[in-house]
Every structure is written in structure tokens, then in C-alpha cells.
Amino acid sequence: MANLLLGFLVISFYLLGTLIHAADGSIHEYNNQGFTKIANARYFFGGSEGIYGSQFLDVHASSDTTPLKRNSFIRFDDITFVRTKESASKQNSTQVTAGLVEAILFEVKQQDRVGGSFFKTEDMCCTTKLADAGSCKLGEVMISADPNDPEWPKRIPTFFKRGEEEVKMSPEAVIIKKTGWYTVYFMTCDPELDGTTIRGRTVWKNRGGYLQGDKAPLMKFYASMLLAYVVLGLLWFPQVAQYWKDGIQLHSHISLVIAFTMGELAFLYFDFAYLDSAGTSPMEVTVWAITLSSMRKALSRLLLLVISSGYGIVRPTLGGITLRMLLIGVLCFVISESLGLARLYWKLALSS
């Protein structure tokens, strides 16, 4: 059983080292991924996160600082669109929107203003009928401006020149003024751009750091819990050491649960703190947090089982069920570890 557990751990860490090469967090990487057809458009999902509104909205910063350091923002870094040779040769230069790719940025409550929902149609791109009515421009994604904020939803256009197979989006940073959940899509209405791919990254930064807005409170929670367990450890461990001769094995098990919980919280806090400062999450720390969490869950469940069986209360030993209890503990660890690694890999697969 010990060899089985060791083998599982080795395989898990090896798979993570080979399969997970992108960092989770507020930096979304795009690695030559293609666009997906939706209605009469093609789109690529660029990411979605909660962002706190900027505290400072002074865009006239002095020379020794920049507005981005003072505000929440979404920045487009080295975004490059690549189309096929066949598409480049077919481009009709007489069309105003030929070779157009748009970055669409909107708040979640504005999602009905992107596409045809607002115009009572299932199409995403402007149709000839709507263009003739003056509702939108032919060849562009339909967007209805928010009356409370006419600049939103935002669109940032990028054009392929005639015969050009690759085009880079101009560097752009959008300052976020209002707290909300924001989404980025890359879309094109040009059917000749079928097969286009995207590479580059977007950087999403809150006013306090890179940590996502929905996760920011968790960092303080983990810090508070870690401090609470440190205080508990300072009270518990000296007592266990002082009266170790009079203690029972359950006291050792409780000490292990406290120690594993302290380690889990420390890794979780460090993971969040590093993500908040650097914008990426170190995978080694995340994996160790998952492993310590699995150990803690397995040991605490095992502890509950042995106490429920009467051990240390009405019976001095577990007798013939010792092996079964150990097998249950190992099984709990394997299931918890597998679930944690699967969730991590699935999350990374969705964000990459």
C-alpha cells in the first residue's frame, strides 16, 4: 500500500510538470488558438474576471509614474492574429471592414448589448438590413452603447492589410473605473478570416494587485486562519510535549491535523500573495497546497472514524479493524488528491 501511494504521488507530480506549463492567474496566455464560429461571426474567448474599480483616475501622471500603476486595468500585450495564406490572397481591399478583427470588452451586465440580442436577432455581426436602418456598420460586431456609460462596451479594431498573413494589435490598456465582472472577446465578421489564430496575452490588474477581485477577500481569510492556527499550535504543542507520557495516540493524530492545516494555509496564502504581486501563480506551491489539503482531509476523516469507533474513549485499541481504517485513510487521500489535481488541470486547460 505504501508503494502504491508513493507511485501515485510520483505520477501526479510528473503529469503536472509535463502537462501544466502555463501559469494560472490574472495573465491570460493565448498560444496560437483558433476562433470558434457563432451565428454569423467567429470569436475567441479572451478571459473573464472580477475587477475592482480604480481609486485613482488621474490619467495625467508625472514622468516618474504611469496611470497603470495607479489604476485597475486590462492590458493587451503582444496580441498577434495570424490568418491562412488563402485568406490573405482573397482579401477584397474595396471593403471597408475587410480583414477586421475586433477586441470586445464589456461588463457582464452589458452582455446583452454585444451581438444581436438588443436588436432582436440571433446574429452577432451587423446585417445589411440593420446597416441600411443605421443601427450598425456592416462588417462589424453589433454593439449597443450603454446609456449610462456611452464608452462601453468597448471595441478595439485591428485590420489585416491586403496580402498580410500576420498583424499585431496595437498596445492598448483599458482603465477600469467601475467595480464589476469583465469579459474580453476577440471577434471577426469577415468570413474570409476562417482559420485565423491568436497568440499573445492579456494582463488583468486590480487596484491592489493582480489577484482576481473575487479571490481578493480569500487572501485575508487565509492569513487570519493561519494566524489562528499558529496561536492554537503555540497552545497545543507545548502541552502535548509536556504531558507526552500521559497522552494517548489520539493526541499525536490531532497534532498532525493541526500541523498539516498550518502547512496548507501557509501554502495557500503564499500562492495568493505571489499571484497578487506577480500576476502568475507558482504551480509547485499550488500542488503542495493541494497535497497538504488532501493529507489533512484524509487524516481528519480517519480521526473522526476512530473516535466514532470508541478508540481512546471506551476501547484501548482498534483491534481487527486497524488495517481497514488505514485503507480508508489512504483511499480518502487518493480521491481528494486526484480531485484537486483534476480541478487544477481543468482550470488551466480552460484558461490557456
Rank of each mutant, 00 (worst) to 15 (best):
M1C: 11
A2I: 10
N3F: 04
G7L: 05
S12E: 07
S12D: 10
L19I: 10
N31T: 07
N31S: 08
K37L: 05
A39V: 07
G47W: 01
Y52D: 13
H60Y: 08
S62H: 11
N71F: 00
T80R: 14
K85T: 04
A88E: 03
S89V: 00
S89Q: 14
T94M: 14
T94K: 15
Q95K: 14
T97E: 15
F106T: 01
F106E: 00
G115Q: 04
S117R: 14
F119C: 15
M124G: 10
M124H: 12
C125M: 07
T127K: 12
L130V: 06
L130C: 09
S135T: 09
D146N: 15
D149N: 13
R162H: 11
G163R: 08
E164C: 02
M169W: 02
T179W: 03
W181H: 15
Y182C: 08
T188G: 06
C189Q: 08
I198W: 07
V203R: 14
K205R: 13
G209F: 04
D214Q: 10
A216E: 07
A216F: 01
A216R: 02
S224N: 15
L227G: 15
A228F: 10
P238Q: 11
K245D: 11
D246M: 13
S252C: 01
S252I: 00
H253F: 06
S255L: 09
T261A: 09
G263S: 08
G263T: 03
A273M: 05
A273Q: 07
D276N: 14
W288M: 11
A289W: 04
I290E: 01
T291L: 06
A298L: 01
L304Y: 13
S308Y: 11
S308I: 04
G312H: 08
G312C: 07
I313F: 10
R315F: 02
R315Q: 13
T317M: 05
